[in-house]
Nucleic acid binder design. Structure first.
Lengths: 202, 202
DNA sequence: GCGCACCCATGACGACTGTCACCGGGCAGT
DNA sequence: ACTGCCCGGTGACAGTCGTCATGGGTGCGC
């Protein structure tokens, strides 16, 4: 009997996935959480074998949760189940110690099999996404550049970003200019979109 | 036996919801589609009683699908099941003839009950969202303004928008300025974000 | 007909943005 | 010690953006 943990901020999806996986005879959902920072304690308390984590969650994202879980309970494997197949997500997830990465587009029948493979110590990767991850590569943005770009998300002006980050306006413009150049965008907004699509803003 | 149709672009969520609903004795999922433009034919062919539709789908969005389905098969009720509780979505969905509106945050147990209520001819509304919908009101944007704002999404420059819409650059700037004023934003990017959050860009 | 709202357009103006050159400081590798 | 990279900052400049006034055209309801 493989003991599972589900982490997803959408209660309906969580419950539905639980129903789907409980149909399998050898799988059993023993814990459900809605926040990333509740993963570790729930996994430890319930002696979880495989954790299915979403990437975008309140509290802590799936990548951080993966790293924390792997160090707190090394016997527990992690399978990322996420909406967005962003190349950067896959890369970071694997670096954090995840054993598999599945997008929510995949057929429902394959999920149970993916769980079993992960539990057996094998890796599960979306082949197309893995290729894309290799092509787009790691993020070329420096720490400050991503931070500024992330702060500029949502349409804040340069003055706002400078205020929230305690920087000079000129510095913010410089970092943004560098980010625009590196992403190949012609705009701040386009740079935000491209960086987000590639999973560089986390 | 209530016959159900599921429409969601994420196969995994679709399959999981099917598993969840099939656990109920009086519910039966008889059709699944991944695109909005496949809803009507699938509903007609399978004599569907209640259709669970996502809002954001390829082909046709859930609102358009709702209207088409209500006119093609009036006996079939529609329950919108969506990720984003955008006020504008709820308003437009109800205007299009939906009987219920549920966000994916709601507990899994309530879904079956919502389906039964919708099938019985009752309305199912998220109370908080309904209030929000009344507060934010209908979209104040004109057709052209929303179109320009939608085209400016993703960070295209004024020249690009003008080219794709066959307009003068000055006109585009005027429409954008009006949209910025009506949304209360201080930016084009912020206007896009606000309008999107309120469900004004469809 | 008349008003009204929307659409398209033009021109002008100030503000913001993107880019570049340049400076100093800190920190890691050779 | 020297080089290279990242960080923070300044100043200047062209380009874009946001706003306003203004005009003409259309379609709608009273």
């Amino acid at each position: 009997m493989i003991r599972l943990l589900l982490a997803d901020d959408q209660a309906l999806v969580r419950g539905a996935l639980a129903a789907l996986l409980d149909l399998e005879g050898d799988l059993q959902v023993v814990a459900e959480v809605s926040r990333g920072d509740e993963v570790v304690s729930a996994a430890v308390q319930n002696a979880v074998d495989v954790a299915l984590l979403d990437v975008e969650m309140p509290g802590a994202d799936g990548i951080v949760a993966t790293a924390a879980l792997r160090s707190a309970r090394p016997s527990c494997r992690v399978l990322i189940v996420t909406t967005f197949g962003r190349p950067g997500y896959l890369r970071r997830a694997m670096e954090a110690g995840a054993s598999g990465f599945v997008v929510k587009d995949t057929p429902a029948r394959q999920l149970a099999e993916a769980v079993r493979r992960v539990h057996a110590g094998l890796r599960v990767l979306d082949p197309g996404l893995a290729e894309e991850s290799l092509v787009s590569g790691a993020s070329p943005l420096t720490a400050r550049e991503t931070e500024v770009l992330r702060a500029a998300r949502g349409g804040d002006t340069v003055a706002d970003v400078a205020a929230t980050l305690h920087l000079s306006e000129g510095t913010v413009r410089n970092h943004l200019s560098a980010a625009i150049g590196k992403t190949g965008a012609r705009n701040r907004a386009e740079a935000v979109r491209l960086a987000e699509d590639r999973g560089w803003l986390l």
